[in-house]
Design a protein around this nucleic acid. Structure first.
Length: 410
RNA sequence: GGGCAGUUACCAAAGUGGACAAAUGGGACUGACUGUAAAUCAGUUGCGAAAGCUUCGAAGGUUCGAAUCCUCCACUGCCCA
């Protein structure tokens, strides 16, 4: 059901919060109110079923879909099972290897499982590319290629960059945006959302639909949040991500380690705090009456609440303050069974806290290893000798590096 | 089809017969500082306790000795057809 006349504020929120680009904003505003001839809008999101561990970066899009749903619009999620079977033609990208039908199926299931933690299932239509591409033939494919020119393809940022700097571009890569664009035709989508990196692909859908006698979809691209380094896009390949399913404490800690200047975009992308209040935070931090740390604590709390719940967020905050502000040991230290006295280096490697003996020795030499013989309540002694033998002291705690601990069990 | 250039550690990029486990930068890690950060400073960053061993696209070869020279193969880019 289409929600009766959303307010201007709601629409503004939908179209600006975390949003990079809205194509034909006036048209979209009208559609949001009227629907497509009174029907809920079909809001499309394309999914590459190669990922299974979703990050909170993906959630940014999911949350936007939910905002659409709250106005009564429909989510159409397309599982790119057909293109996933193609893999990456250049074989460069690890993430794009050829997948079997089985893998695709299980990846998609995992994806949707996480997806529906945010997006309402009842207002969602799940579709698979193979539904229409399995019957596609060579003629159809070439016809599709004919709708675009090489110059047009090179408008895409990453194509043009690669072309200019002499990095290979496989011809089949030109096919991907077209296939993705055709998905919009097959699904009669009214709106498509994606990250800013998808702008070109979304526009292709917009170009193709009129050719097939449909109204061109509106497109809305979202700013991608940066990863833990504060600079690069959050992603698995860069290992700078926070998993959607990360435990609350973990998520809290990672959020707190974000550089200050990323806070605003995280607030906008992942919380519902009013823009006015965010402006207020910025103003007070600039004039120095508000400690950025406290703002960040608020941010972490809000976001963890989104993915878990308030209680978990508060617990996360307590654990964080305890471990990092007060520099006490964390409460949840994993146990390590120690049968008999053992050399520290061996112990660290066995526990998986260093990749090799050399690395473990390195940590020791650099003063990164400490032992708390009496457990959390006692004092610590720094271990500086790689030949040190760790005795079997039940309850003793070993600290390795900044944040790895283990509790010795007899 | 022809010509030219290239392939070095996590990434980028020096090295062009010995002093090369390989400069430098980025990243990562550790310590100091701090607000948890950032910035800054110091250190580490193939494996091995060490002797030593394995690494410079792959395989062979020349040489006392090769990332460096030769042969061949693979891959990539550019130019000409």
């Amino acid at each position: 059901m289409l929600k009766q006349s959303p307010t201007k504020k709601e629409i503004d929120h939908l179209l600006t919060r975390g949003v990079s680009l809205v194509e034909k904003e006036a048209d979209l505003r009208r559609l949001l109110v009227e629907g497509n001839k009174g029907e809920p809008l079909r809001v499309k999101l394309g999914v590459d079923p190669t990922h299974y561990d979703l990050t909170i970066g993906h959630a940014v899009l999911f949350r936007k879909l939910r905002q659409f749903q709250r106005m009564g619009h429909k989510t159409v999620v397309v599982i790119g099972d057909w293109t996933a079977r193609l893999g990456d033609p250049s074989g460069r990208m690890e993430a794009r290897k050829v997948l079997t039908a089985e893998q695709v199926k299980s990846n998609a299931a995992t994806y949707l499982d996480q997806f529906f933690r945010i997006v309402d299932k009842d207002q969602t239509e799940v579709r698979y590319q193979t539904e229409w591409f399995d019957t596609f033939n060579l003629g159809d494919a070439i016809k599709l290629l004919g709708f675009k020119t090489v110059a047009q393809m090179l408008e895409r940022d990453d194509f043009s960059k690669r072309y200019k700097s002499g990095i290979e571009i496989s011809l089949s890569e030109f096919m991907y945006p077209l296939l993705q664009g055709y998905d919009s035709v097959a699904l009669r989508s009214d709106v498509e959302i994606g990250g800013t990196d998808q702008t070109f692909n979304l526009l292709v859908g917009r170009d193709l639909q009129p050719i097939f006698g449909q109204t061109a979809q509106q497109i809305l691209t979202m700013n991608l949040i940066v990863g833990l380094d504060g600079v690069k896009k959050m992603g698995k390949s860069l290992d700078n991500y926070i998993a959607m399913g990360a435990p609350a404490k973990d998520m809290f800690g990672k959020l707190m380690s974000l550089p200050d200047q990323t806070m605003r975009s995280y607030f906008e992308a992942l919380t519902e705090i009013d823009t006015e209040e965010l402006d207020e935070f910025d103003r007070k931090m600039t004039e120095g009456s508000l400690n950025p740390r406290d703002v960040k604590l608020r941010m972490a709390r809000e976001i963890v609440t989104e993915f878990h719940n308030l209680a978990a967020a508060e617990e996360g905050q307590e654990a964080f303050i305890r471990q990092f502000s007060e520099r006490k040991l964390p409460t949840d230290i994993p146990d390590f069974q120690l049968g008999s006295a053992k050399n520290v280096v061996d112990l660290i490697v066995e526990a998986g806290l260093a990749a090799s003996n050399n690395k473990a020795r390195e940590l020791i030499k650099q003063g990164g290893v400490a032992l708390f013989p009496e457990g959390a309540s006692g004092n610590s002694e720094r271990i500086t000798d790689p030949n040190y033998t760790v005795d079997v002291i039940d309850g003793a705690i070993l600290k390795v590096g900044k944040r790895n601990y283990l509790r010795i069990k007899a």
